[in-house]
């Protein structure tokens, strides 16, 4: 009997700590993403408040400057009634945000945590992550259409316009990193960076373009066009209530998180450097990756306090003229570096 329990315990632990389960569910997957969500939304409100000389969230847990505000918000979302308006398309209205959340979440699964710890170790894992990221906008269009509301429809159309324009610079700037390190495998890219140096120093142009595209595509501040609060309430999620609204609010942050992880892997050296306490278990280097991604996320939410909002035509012009050309230039730049390497 004791043996059986022991056996079950060990296999269970093994199963939990196998990359295929641990990565999507615990770290950097669901649990890590949720805790990051809670911290980041609080941080966004707090940073904006401090820069505008206010207090921000305060009264829930006064000693920690209101850090538990988002937990309280989440509880409220969970227990408030989900109202389904009469005029919506019911199936799409309920299902689309859930599917959208799942699809936004998927790219995290491909991103490795360390050399020996990846749920999917594929030779084209960078391309898989990018391909999964491009599915976001069409589901958002369905969400906005299903609500049958003027504001959500306008928000969805704006997101459609933006997505058609940001996908090309996103893919090209990621590909220029792939050209630089001569691989589509994210683990290999990090290994090369450990040997050569971080990608941001080799190709700063691509790094800048990718960073701007992260901010652009997750509707953070100068490009917060799809869910512009002061114009169209909250964009595609106007009609939503309760936990569905909570999902909708979290989706752009989850996307920001997954793209920041990809950014850290491509340009910031991933989980390198692996120093002493981190080489004890293959999961531990992920902490460094997480910290790097968190810095990117924190920077993106900090921009809320700095910028006003672009008009949609300005944003589209930036995407098609500047980002597009800069992305192409960064690709050429990467090829130049490769040629210099081959010659020298």
């Amino acid at each position: 009997m004791y043996d059986l329990i022991n056996y079950l315990w060990e296999t269970g632990l093994n199963l939990l700590f196998s990359p295929e389960i641990f990565e999507p569910l615990v770290f950097p997957g669901l649990i890590a993403a949720f805790s990051l969500l809670i911290v980041v939304i609080w941080l966004e409100r707090k940073i904006a408040a401090i820069i505008q000389m206010r207090y921000g969230p305060y009264y829930i847990s006064r000693h920690t400057e209101g850090a538990l505000q988002l937990v309280a918000d989440l509880l409220r979302f969970l227990f408030s009634e989900v109202i389904i308006p009469k005029s919506v398309d019911k199936i799409a209205y309920v299902l689309a945000p859930i599917i959208l959340f799942a699809f936004t979440f998927l790219p995290i699964v491909v991103i490795p945590v360390s050399k020996d710890f990846a749920a999917i170790d594929h030779e084209y894992s960078l391309l898989i992550a990018l391909a999964l990221m491009t599915l976001y906008s069409s589901f958002l269009l369905i969400v906005s259409w299903a609500s049958n509301n003027k504001f959500s429809f306008i928000g969805g159309l704006r997101e459609g316009f933006l997505s058609l324009s940001y996908e090309i610079p996103l893919i090209i700037s990621a590909l220029s990193a792939a050209v630089l390190f001569d691989s589509f495998n994210l683990i290999e890219i990090v290994e090369k960076q450990a040997a050569m140096g971080w990608g941001i120093f080799y190709n700063p142009l691509a790094a800048i373009v990718f960073l701007v595209v992260i901010i652009y595509s997750t509707s953070r501040y100068p490009y917060e066009i799809a869910e512009a609060e002061s114009e169209i309430v909250i964009g595609p999620f106007t009609e939503y209530t309760g936990i569905l609204f909570g999902l909708g609010m979290g989706i752009s942050y989850i996307k920001l998180y997954s793209m920041s992880l990809l950014y850290a892997v491509l340009f910031l050296g991933g989980w390198e450097p692996v120093v002493w306490p981190l080489n004890l278990h293959p999961v531990l280097p992920g902490i460094i990756l997480f910290i790097k991604a968190f810095i990117i996320v924190a920077f993106s939410v900090f921009l809320r306090a700095v910028y006003p909002r672009y008009r949609i035509d300005q944003a589209l012009r930036i995407a098609w003229w500047k980002l597009f050309t800069l992305a192409f230039l960064s690709l050429l730049f990467s090829y130049g570096i490769k040629i210099i390497e081959v010659m020298g």
């Binding site: 940073i47 820069i51 000389m53 207090y55 305060y58 900090f302 921009l303 306090a305 700095v306 910028y307």
Partner: peptide, 18 residues
């Protein structure tokens, strides 16, 4: 420059009255 201005104001100097 804009980002630098934002960073400069990151030190709490609140005007709001509790």
């Amino acid at each position: 420059k804009a980002i630098g201005t934002g960073l400069k104001y990151l030190i709490p100097r609140r005007l709001t009255l509790m």
